[in-house]
């Protein structure tokens, strides 16, 4: 089954559905074709009339691949013709903006609430955090190179760049752990003040996101090596790349608003 089979090829007449495409013939797009594929009686199934090859048609409509050729099939697509997985990832990232927006604005609200104790101006180590930021920024470069290699079907370089990205991410998380430890030793605990609570919550949430990204990168690298990635490999790499870049852009905002702008 080719890519076109999924949504567009089998237009109306033989299925008995009305040819709605004619009403908008100038701009007959992917969606019109998809809906026109569905016969009036519903989805075809085994033993039902009106379809020459019921099982094949069912696969077309559901998007489920036929087993023997599963590796060669494109990702499941929505009625827009776009990948469901990719659309879901973008929607997820959009919702993550709300999560980090809440955490960042909470920090902005409470960063001055430290009752004369340790505050942002006394405790932040800008040169150290700048190096961490640089490391995370460079991990975005290695990630995009991994995506680029995956799109060229270059599995070896994809794996190399994925592992490099994970290592850079681990360096960032290590730096954050060191920073937290040194802050704690200086007397800034999680419950010391509203400032410290909001700071640790914000940067801690970000650190957890980076850590999850590292796990995903390493898992993907191992799956690529053992050829266990089903479906579209390039898209899988790209989806994890999108998540990783999102973690990077969140840090771009945190670095400026939390570290560089004085309270």
């Amino acid at each position: 089954m080719s890519d076109g089979d999924t949504v567009g090829e089998n237009k109306t007449p033989e299925n008995g559905a009305p040819d709605q495409g004619n009403t908008t013939s100038d701009n007959a797009g992917p969606v019109t074709s998809t809906i026109d594929e569905i016969p009036m009686g519903g989805l075809p199934g085994p033993g039902r009339s009106g379809s020459a090859a019921p099982a094949e048609d069912g696969a077309k409509l559901t998007g489920l691949p036929d087993r023997p050729e599963a590796e060669e099939h494109p990702p499941l697509t929505s009625t827009t013709g776009l990948s469901n997985n990719k659309m879901g990832m973008w929607l997820f990232l959009g919702s993550e903006c709300l999560l980090f927006g809440g955490l960042i604005s909470t920090y902005m609200l409470y960063r001055g609430r430290h009752s004369g104790g340790l505050g942002p101006d006394q405790i932040y180590d800008i040169p150290f955090t700048s190096v961490s930021s640089f490391v995370l920024l460079m991990s975005s470069l290695t990630m995009v190179l991994a995506v680029s290699a995956a799109q060229r079907k270059d599995d070896r370089n994809t794996t190399v760049w994925l592992v490099t990205t994970a290592l850079l991410g681990a360096t960032f998380v290590g730096g954050q752990a060191y920073e937290f430890t040194s802050f704690y030793r200086e007397g800034l605990g999680y419950t010391t003040s509203l400032f410290s609570s909001s700071f640790y919550t914000l940067t801690g949430f970000h650190g957890v996101h980076v850590s999850l990204g590292i796990v995903m990168l390493l898992a993907l690298a191992m799956m690529l090596r053992s050829e266990r990635v089903s479906g579209d490999r390039a898209e899988t790499v790209e989806l994890i790349g999108l998540y990783w870049h999102f973690v990077d852009i969140v840090w771009i905002v945190i670095f400026t608003l939390v570290y560089l702008i004085p309270a």
């Binding site: 080719s2 890519d3 797009g29 992917p30 494109p74 013709g81 990719k86 390039a234």
Partner: peptide, 19 residues
């Protein structure tokens, strides 16, 4: 739109032909 109705810029959805 082209064959299969995929958005032409969605390079992941350009089909089994690859990338």
């Amino acid at each position: 739109t082209t064959t299969g109705g995929h958005g032409p810029t969605d390079h992941q959805a350009t089909g089994a032909a690859g990338h």
